[in-house]
């Protein structure tokens, strides 16, 4: 406790020094490079998202004009939720077989945490955009206010990434168990999911930033992101040491 707490409080600025940012960038780049080197994990995430979109479309076999925007919206966020959990569950895959001990000696846990959050944001944004494009292609797109929908979409992905990074860290310590990851993250993401569905429904109806209801939802999601990131900031060093 004493080591970490003193590090948090007195050395807060050290996380943002030039050297620290370089280290963060190196850790981030390591994950991206490993993903492109070992193409199976990246392509499996992409294929999973395309398949799940197609399965959902084929179950309804209709366009947006027949299912209506409510179903379109709910289905889109359910798909995004499952794709995100599947993609983020792989975030500590490269640290299996003792690589985590090696990283523990090389770097500080907080840098690993932030590099993983950045990596997950990149991965989930990429898969999310591909999924949205394919989903719009097969089902149609009823969004009335694209700017507001984009705001909700990006905020949602960032929130998913920040929560799922921590949960996949916990699942990693429990032996990288995918079932455990799913049962922990599905209920954890549900309040967020409800806010996102409500917010993007407003954006689909063309109601956006000029209304109090929409701004409140954006603020609530931002507050959830802040809470989760600050909790991860405090808790991850203990988790990484376990």
């Amino acid at each position: 406790m004493s080591f970490y707490s003193s590090y948090f409080i007195f050395n807060f600025a050290a996380h943002f020094s030039n050297q620290a940012l370089k280290e963060l960038w190196a850790l981030y780049k390591k994950d991206i490079i490993l993903d492109f080197k070992n193409k199976s994990s990246l392509s499996s995430v992409l294929l999973y998202s395309l398949t799940i979109v197609f399965v959902s479309y084929y179950s309804f076999k209709v366009k947006i004009s027949e299912v209506g925007p409510i179903v379109w919206n709910a289905l889109f966020w359910i798909i995004t939720l499952f794709i995100s959990i599947n993609a983020a569950s792989k975030s500590f895959q490269n640290e299996m077989n003792g690589v985590d001990y090696y990283l523990y000696q090389l770097s500080n846990p907080l840098k690993i945490l932030f590099s993983k959050i950045l990596y997950n944001i990149t991965l989930l944004l990429a898969t999310g955009i591909i999924c949205l494009a394919f989903y719009s292609l097969v089902m149609g797109n009823p969004v009335g206010s694209p700017v507001d929908f984009t705001i909700i979409f990006v905020l949602g992905i960032v929130a998913f990434a920040s929560i799922l990074t921590m949960v996949s860290g916990i699942a990693f310590k429990a032996g990288n168990n995918f079932t455990l990851m799913a049962i922990m993250s599905l209920p954890l993401l549900l309040p967020l999911e409800m806010l996102l569905i409500k917010g993007s429904m407003l954006a689909i109806d063309g109601i956006g930033m000029d209304t109090v209801g929409f701004r409140n939802i954006v603020l609530s999601i931002s507050a959830l992101i802040m809470i989760e990131i600050s909790l991860s900031y405090l808790l991850f060093p203990y988790l990484w040491r376990a």
């Binding site: 909790l231 040491r241 376990a242």
Partner: peptide
């Protein structure tokens, strides 16, 4: 340790 981390993480949610 791991379950303590999880317990603190879910409490605000």
């Amino acid at each position: 340790t791991v379950s303590a981390v999880y317990n603190i993480l879910v409490f605000p949610i």
